[in-house]
């Protein structure tokens, strides 16, 4: 086994490092890494960002958005949690999670944390999830990665992943919501740093042979390049879903009912209808034309909405109200 120390908390670089190891470095032995992130939401490869994320809140809180190359649902991570990665030649074409999860399970047991593995390949304590796992197979290599909640901000996790009820139609993989638990509640005596040190030591101890590898300067450069071109690519993060139809409405006290019916194709707003019983001289068709064709994200729609409302205000309803309705 080869252990690679990771100090970066940049999610794009850390996903690029996994990809680099599977697609280009291709060690014969399994690689293990443990790392953390700044506040980040991670979409599964075939998920719809609009169905999973509270984009307005995410932008306000400066939370990073990334799309994994692996499957499964959306998760929230921050410096209070950690991610583990195993990268190795694919031993079989049949999917298996057991070896990886059992390694983590044993490493936790050595810290007196007794976890159960579920049929969905999560790790739980008292039926509350603290670890999810996912994989992708690329060019004969398996990248298995998982998350561990140790002292994550669960309130922020809930807010970032809480999407108001709405009508949404698209072809995507939907997340399954579960109760969660931080491991710090089981082992309050451990700091995050202690926990990570012991987890690394315990995982390494399960392999007969283990070495440490440090990337060369050229390899680090290559990883930075892959991060920029693959994982920071907004068309990959937000444009993966071919077609989404959304219908959202809300009654604003003192303002009235506002309803949006819209279509988003590969992350671009392609159709929008604004209806309701609000008071304004705003021409709904002209308003729609000012927004259509732009990336469907709070940052790109805020200014044209502001400009439209500056010219034709809506009584009792502000730009932020409309952004909340569109993206929360």
């Amino acid at each position: 086994m080869i252990y690679i120390p990771v100090t970066s908390t940049n999610i794009y670089q850390n996903f690029a490092l996994e990809y680099f190891l599977a697609a280009e470095k291709r060690f014969k032995e399994p690689v293990f890494m443990l790392w953390s992130t700044t506040p980040t939401v991670m979409l599964g490869k075939y998920q719809d960002a609009l169905a999973e994320l509270n984009l307005n809140y995410i932008q306000q809180q400066s939370i990073q958005v990334v799309r994994r190359y692996s499957g499964g649902g959306t998760i929230y991570t921050d410096a209070g949690g950690c991610q583990f990665s195993f990268i190795q030649p694919q031993s079989t074409t049949t999917i298996s999670f057991d070896t990886y999860i059992e390694t983590i399970q044993q490493a936790l047991l050595d810290m007196n944390i007794s976890a159960e593995k579920t049929s969905r390949n999560d790790l739980t304590i008292k039926e509350k999830k603290f670890s999810g796992n996912a994989q992708y197979n690329h060019q004969g290599y398996t990248v298995h990665h998982g998350s561990i909640l140790f002292d994550t901000d669960l309130e922020q996790m809930y807010d970032a992943l809480h999407v108001d009820d709405m009508k949404l139609r698209s072809k995507h993989i939907a997340s399954i919501r579960q109760h969660t638990i931080n491991l710090k509640t089981i082992r309050p005596d451990l700091t995050m740093a202690d926990f990570k040190t012991r987890l690394i030591r315990n995982v390494r101890a399960t392999f007969a042979q283990h070495d440490t590898y440090h990337l060369t300067a050229a390899e680090r450069q290559r990883v930075m390049h892959l991060a920029e071109t693959l994982f920071e690519d907004e068309s990959f993060i937000f444009g993966k879903t071919p077609h989404t139809e959304i219908s959202k409405k809300h009654y604003f006290p003192g303002g009235g009912l506002v309803q949006f019916d819209l279509n988003v194709n590969h992350g671009i707003l392609t159709d929008l209808r604004l209806t309701g019983d609000f008071f304004s001289n705003l021409d709904a068709s002209h308003f729609a034309q000012q927004l259509i064709g732009r990336p469907f994200r709070p940052a790109t729609l805020k200014r044209p909405i502001q400009q439209a409302l500056a010219a034709y205000p809506i009584l009792g309803i502000q730009t932020e109200d409309l952004l909340d309705l569109l993206f929360s």
């Binding site: 490869k45 969905r120 999810g132």
Partner: peptide
């Protein structure tokens, strides 16, 4: 394809 949280080529 995706199945069981795995993307397979």
């Amino acid at each position: 394809v995706e199945t069981d949280k795995v993307i397979s080529e």
